[in-house]
């Protein structure tokens, strides 16, 4: 494994009580790569992403981001998180703040940037993703798709080296999915390193550098999208994709 990998995970284990969720995950993500995690609900996709962002303490194993082990004792979690953006399924915007305040809060507090600078940057980012007219709006007055785009912009405003997307379209009405996937596509085209947990198989096939199939807390199979969706080797992967196809999701 090269030392220049954006993200390196070795032997990651995590359980909640007696429930073993991650049972030895090994994963290497290169710079500018887009890794899609697929698998049934409960297979550990979300937990894996939350562990990388240190929102969940890991039980065993190592996570290395851009050469720095972030799972070692005494690591400054706030510093680590500033370089890793995460976007959640349920958006989790701050409802008492306007879109602009949502986006500028972390750069101002965590990066100690000035109000003028952060607002200028936020307006530019919001404009880039078609949200210019929503700058002063409050989250409750936005559609789900708009909220999720704001959440992505909020994470981007910290200028992360790595973005983690946790089923970001699963809570959206079908007609709003595309606008969010377009944003992610644009990020990928811009060279953003991303790890994406998703149920959108068509999207994964189009955008992924690599696809990982999670089953029961392990990465059962990984490969290029062509290989994974065209000729998966593992019976469990075949079974999972078969079910997706019959549900008309691919």
């Amino acid at each position: 494994m090269s030392s220049t990998a954006a993200l390196e995970i070795e032997g990651l284990r995590k359980s909640f009580g007696k429930n073993l969720v991650l049972d030895g995950i090994d994963l290497s993500v290169g710079e500018h790569e887009v890794t899609c995690l697929i698998g049934a609900s409960g297979s550990g996709k979300s937990t894996l992403l939350r562990c990388v962002n240190l929102l969940e303490p890991v039980d065993a194993g190592r996570i290395v981001v851009a050469g720095e082990e972030i799972t070692r004792r005494g690591v400054d979690v706030n510093r680590v998180r500033r370089r890793i953006g995460i976007v959640f399924q349920a958006f989790n915007l701050f409802p008492h703040m306007s879109v602009l305040e949502n986006v500028t809060l972390a750069p101002r507090l965590a990066l100690r940037k000035g109000r003028g600078e952060t607002e200028e940057q936020a307006r530019a980012l919001l404009g880039r993703f078609g949200l210019s007219d929503k700058v002063e709006a409050y989250p409750d007055h936005l559609s789900g798709g708009q909220q999720q785009r704001v959440a992505i912009v909020r994470a981007l405003a910290m200028q992360p080296r790595l973005m983690l997307l946790d089923e970001v379209t699963s809570a959206l009405d079908p007609e709003l999915v595309a606008e969010v996937l377009d944003v992610i596509g644009e990020l990928a085209a811009g060279g953003m390193t991303m790890v994406i947990a998703t149920h959108e198989m068509g999207f994964a096939r189009d955008i992924a550098t690599r696809v990982c199939f999670l089953d029961d807390g392990v990465i059962l199979e990984q490969g290029s999208p062509e290989q994974m969706f065209g000729s998966p080797r593992e019976p469990r992967t075949q079974q999972f994709l078969q079910r997706i196809v019959s549900a008309h999701r691919l």
Binding site: R81, F94, A106
Partner: peptide, 21 residues
């Protein structure tokens, strides 16, 4: 709790999260 997770994930400290979010 997702509000705290969102704030902490952005690199805000526990105190900043409490105060602002």
């Amino acid at each position: 709790p997702s509000q705290e997770a969102a704030a902490r994930s952005l690199g805000l400290t526990r105190g900043q999260t409490l105060r602002k979010v």
